[in-house]
Design a protein around this nucleic acid. Structure first.
Lengths: 250, 250
DNA sequence: AGAGAAGCTTGACTCTTGTCAAAGCGGAAT
DNA sequence: ATTCCGCTTTGACAAGAGTCAAGCTTCTCT
């Protein structure tokens, strides 16, 4: 049942752009055939990124957005003294680089957590194409807005929740996003280290480890290193019921 | 020296749209006279919001963005059990409602912290105008991206910084934004309560109070209820040097 | 295959922040 | 002008998470 890699399932591929598995990007837009062709022309051939490699770095010039085609990424900002804050984990169909638009400079690092493939979307061409295809323009506004909503939910998590709640919310969020992509919701492999989870959740790696152990002792989950099974996902949901945003539809 | 109200200074007004003091919105775009007229036509007459009133609520239908003309707002998301997370404090020229675009439903509450005025920007008209005026379209993408960058910096703050660092960063950020608007950078009135500051910074109100007292004991600031003076802003800067984002140009 | 490095778990202890409580002050409304 | 309520400050104590350390497992690279 274990998902070997977070690859987008085939049926989604077929329904989306011809050269790019961007479910998020293409499906909801409702483009006709000609518009789809135009968009395809803009999307550069996909690019392979090996595990551990940077897709882009904070401070580099911004030209393109990148959509994850296969694989798994993290994005993070670093402070001057080296503290690292992971700002997100991205799986297939999700967009990176939106923070670079404001200043034409990337505001975070994007690092592959497994061998991955991305599609490059040159932003100036997206902009001009958006002027010709209103629904595409609207879709990009929506994508950016969704990122803002996501960030606000992370703020709620970092500002208000206890360690157990944070970790439960994290596991359930991963589970849900995998399920949407056609993978098992309750049996998956973590692509990131305890330290990276901790950085994302505002916790130390020891706290992450201890909390996972606690969940396992309660038989809510089973932990075998990076292999996680949600045995009683409802218990996790109960734990965070109340402390999640009223209409958190992420 | 105290700023009685966060009103945008006159020279900025003159340089911006004729019916709306939206420095952020108008100045950097470089619109010509006719385009400016078009934009003015879209911006609805400004609306007054009394202190304590909601501009919009989470869950309400989204139609428009709102720009603060005068006054001061907070935006916040609430969890089901009533925990409130303040996601931002907004002063003149800043935009609210960007999170509503994704689902056509507002994702947060916007509440006036003093008697305020806002300009309403119907989003569908902004979108269509953006198609005619590329620089306007680009400007809105940039505004949304800037919001994402801001949110990432807040994540860094909530995830990595200690109470003193958070409060120092908060005070310096306020100071800087006031200075940009022509107000005194080191002598200002807080528009929000200790509890609201705490909610924004992920701290309890008592911790905010104690930390302010600590700063005062060190003669770094002077605190008289809501009246704050930054006596030694450089000490505050030293405190957060290192833990702020490398290129945090907010 | 073996060695070394990196990552994970767990324990003991510390420390920052949260919680509870009480008292003081100021501002808003009558 | 007065009263009351809400905000703020401060103290004492509790608790959750961080720090430090040791030992173990797994993975990677040679």
């Amino acid at each position: 049942m274990t998902t070997e890699q977070t690859t987008i399932p085939l049926h989604a591929l077929k329904l989306s752009c011809s050269n790019c598995s961007l479910r998020e990007l293409c499906l909801p837009v409702g483009l006709n055939r000609e518009e789809m062709t135009q968009l395809d022309a803009v999307i550069r051939q996909s690019r392979r990124i090996k595990r551990g490699e940077y897709l882009f770095r904070s401070g580099e010039g911004f030209k393109s957005l990148f959509a994850v085609r296969t694989g798994f990424f993290k994005t993070c900002v670093s402070s001057q003294d080296g503290r690292e804050q992971v700002t997100g984990f991205l799986m297939s169909g999700e967009l990176m680089g939106l923070d670079g638009i404001s200043s034409n400079i990337h505001g975070c690092d994007a690092i592959a957590l497994e061998d991955s493939e991305v599609c490059e979307l040159p932003f100036n061409r997206i902009e001009s194409l958006g002027r010709d295809i209103p629904s595409l323009q609207h879709h990009f506004f929506r994508l950016m807005s969704r990122e803002i909503v996501r960030d606000q939910n992370v703020m709620l998590l970092l500002g208000n929740m206890k360690a157990e709640e944070r970790l439960a919310a994290f596991l359930l969020n991963l589970s849900q996003r995998l399920a949407i992509r056609g993978f098992a919701a309750n049996d998956f492999i973590l692509r990131m280290s305890r330290e990276e989870i901790g950085s994302f959740l505002g916790l130390k790696l020891e706290t992450v480890s201890r909390t996972l152990s606690k969940f396992q002792q309660q038989s809510w989950i089973s932990v075998d290193h990076k292999h996680i099974q949600l045995v009683k996902p409802d218990e996790l949901k109960t734990l965070i019921s109340g402390c999640v945003h009223s209409n958190s539809a992420e």
